[in-house]
Design a protein around this nucleic acid. Structure first.
Lengths: 227, 227
DNA sequence: ACATTTCTGTTGTTACAACAACATAAGGAG
DNA sequence: CTCCTTATGTTGTTGTAACAACAGAAATGT
């Protein structure tokens, strides 16, 4: 694994190559390769290492108490996973991490990451701050999903999600990063019911849909909030 | 505000009183008092300060796009709020923070908290690590709520929530920290429908309920997972 | 003790989301 | 191009959750 790869990742951003070289020893980095479908972290385990995908992709999966499996996220090169669990000792994983294909994963021990560095190197604390930023962003994403799924109706969830996308992208016309099935999963609704609701909303003139391109039409609903 | 109060809070845990005294200058702490119902942070604003409740309680509220208000959380003395927003610059608040009663709030500027301290004081980095721990814990709580609300049925959500509580408290008999209405809000379901479902489950012999005391009866459903 | 308010459970009605099953469209591989 | 696969939309049925309205219980205040 190349250090030049690491310094471009969000976790190591802002750290110089030579700093990383000197830091490498005290971080106890371990790299491990996995074949497709191999389990990297299993739900119920407790972990001490943050995982960073170096090559390939890993899936974050959740098995509910009836055994239904659902894919929550796909993590690609440079991105990290399980950092919240690794930072809270003794917290059992609610999710499993599985190799989506052949892949390579770097493990970073949080004890070594968080402990006071005897060399008092500034990059250590830079790393912790990067981690805090990443955790905070994930936090906001989780909160946002909770808000978008708090409405009891499919239409409510859609309007909540779509109006956020519009605001976020600064236009009434915008692309969403999900397929219909993924959007249904994100909003925790049935896919066909979602398609159906989108059709209805189009017939009522609330919006226009073309594949992943959505346009919210001015019905006064979203504009009148400024009053 | 007493420094002896601060060192007992999760954010300042592990920091010595004399360290805190020397750190006080570079943290730019500001304390402010609010009267009941005063808005501390308003949804849509961007913030740079973590809030810590010193006295009283504050409410974390969410207004959906139709103006329905819901209370998400109540934060008491020693606890912090809005830290995820303060750590991700330019992220508009999805929630408002309102004084639940007369209260006093301490504001901690994240720029000063996160910047490299010229005095290279170790407590600074201790503070950041505490913050990371808090953020990670909140992360897990948010994830957990998403899992508990991902089932499409009320019964599914209840079983998910209750079986976690049982596992977490290490007993089939346990107390939950919510009233019926709060539990309904947490699971995003209607309160009366929730009561109804609990009755049904009792009639079916799945569990016993007495106020906030729940007992999951051995029906094989929850035990058979170990296979 | 009483009155008042809040909390919880119950019932019946209604709306709507899930589900199944199918139709159509779009993409990809040969 | 044709075949095959996947993605998306459509329809009808069924179950169930929301909702409204109320009753009883519990908590709170006077």
């Amino acid at each position: 694994m190349e250090l030049s790869f690491l310094i471009k990742t969000p976790l190591f951003r802002g750290i110089l190559l030579q700093e990383l070289e000197s830091m490498q020893a005290c971080l106890h980095l371990k790299e491990k390769k996995y074949k497709k479908n191999e389990v990297i972290y299993r739900a119920g385990d407790t972990v001490n290492d943050i995982g960073m995908v170096v090559q390939g992709n890993v899936s974050i999966e959740h098995d509910d108490i009836w055994g239904n499996k659902s894919i929550l996220d796909t993590v690609g090169p440079g991105q990290i996973f399980a950092e919240a669990y690794a930072c809270v000792p003794e917290s059992p994983l609610m999710i499993s991490v599985v190799a989506a294909g052949d892949c390579s994963v770097l493990f970073i021990n949080t004890a070594h990451l968080l402990q006071f560095c005897s060399k008092a190197c500034s990059c250590h604390s830079k790393l912790v701050r990067n981690l805090l930023t990443i955790a905070s962003q994930k936090n906001l994403n989780l909160s946002r999903r909770i808000f978008h799924t708090s409405s009891k109706s499919i239409r409510g969830r859609l309007l909540s999600y779509l109006s956020f996308q519009a605001a976020s992208q600064g236009s009434h016309s915008f692309l969403i990063p999900y397929s219909r099935q993924q959007l249904a999963d994100y909003l925790s609704v049935d896919r066909s019911a979602l398609s159906n609701e989108l059709s209805k909303m189009q017939k009522e003139g609330l919006l226009r849909v073309n594949k992943n391109q959505f346009t919210i039409l001015d019905t006064g609903i979203l504009e009148s909030e400024e009053i």
